[in-house]
Every structure is written in C-alpha cells, then in structure tokens.
C-alpha cells in the first residue's frame, strides 16, 4: 500500500495539524521523496471528508516551513531537502539508534559490538 494520511476526529488535535504533522513526518523520514507530487487539496479533502480549507491550511504551513513547493499547474511537490539532515530527522534517527542499542543489550551485546555489527551490515549493502 502506498503512504497514507489518517485523521482521528476523537483526537483533540485539529485535523489540519494532524495532516501537517503526518506529512512532515513522511517527508522527514524520506517516505515522500523530493519532487514527489502530493494529491491536490480537493482530492485529499474529499478522501478525508474534510473541508478544502482545512487541507489547504496544512499545505500552506508545510510550504511555509519549506517542506513543499506549490506552483500553478504543477501542483504541490515535496521540496528538495538540504544535504544535512533536519533537526527532526536527527531526533528520529537517535530514537531508532536508542531502540537498536536496547535490543542489542537484551541480546547480550555491548554498544561497541552493536556498532561493529552495524558497520558490517553497512559494508555489505
């Protein structure tokens, strides 16, 4: 299944913020790649059963933070990202590394052994 956005109306977070937050995460984690086209405001609003203004606001905020670009006729696309990872991406990566080290500790490996295993796997790719 392709990437998707889910909104929960029970969640006190406003729908536009839920959409913005999920799209930000998808872009930061590389699930939406640079220059990938996002659905039109009308399509996403129709599919989620929201007002077009709600989705338009989420897109506008994403554009304001430099994650997407909107051009007339070309739609909304994921903007090219700088070479260095953004602070949000660094945080996510550190979370993943913490989980990995915790799993390694359960298996009885030291952090150094875990780092060596990671290096071996990286060389194989």
């Amino acid at each position: 299944m392709s990437v998707a956005v889910t909104i929960d109306l029970v969640d006190p977070t406003p729908p536009f913020e839920q959409v913005r937050r999920q799209l930000t995460l998808l872009i930061e984690t590389g699930q939406l790649v640079t220059d990938e086209r996002l659905p039109s405001v009308r399509q996403l609003a129709g599919d989620l059963g929201l007002a077009t203004g709600t989705v338009a606001r989420a897109y506008k905020e994403l554009e304001g933070s430099g994650l997407v670009t909107t051009r007339r006729g070309a739609g909304t696309r994921v903007a090219s990202r700088p070479e260095s990872a953004s602070p949000a991406a660094v945080t996510l990566l550190e979370d993943a590394a913490t989980s990995y080290l915790a799993r390694a500790a359960v298996l009885g490996a030291t952090p150094e052994q875990a780092a060596l295993a990671l290096e071996r796997v990286t060389r194989r790719r």
């Binding site: 990437v3 998707a4 956005v5 889910t6 109306l9 029970v10 659905p39 059963g49």
Partner: peptide, 15 residues
C-alpha cells in the same frame, strides 16, 4: 459519499 467515520485515511497518491 465517503462514510463519515471518526477515523479516516487517504492514500497520498495523486489521482
């Protein structure tokens, strides 16, 4: 009309 459920999802693939 799409069902007006409390949880809704949409694929991010432009049609």
């Amino acid at each position: 009309r799409r069902p007006m459920t409390l949880t809704r999802s949409a694929a991010l693939h432009p049609r």
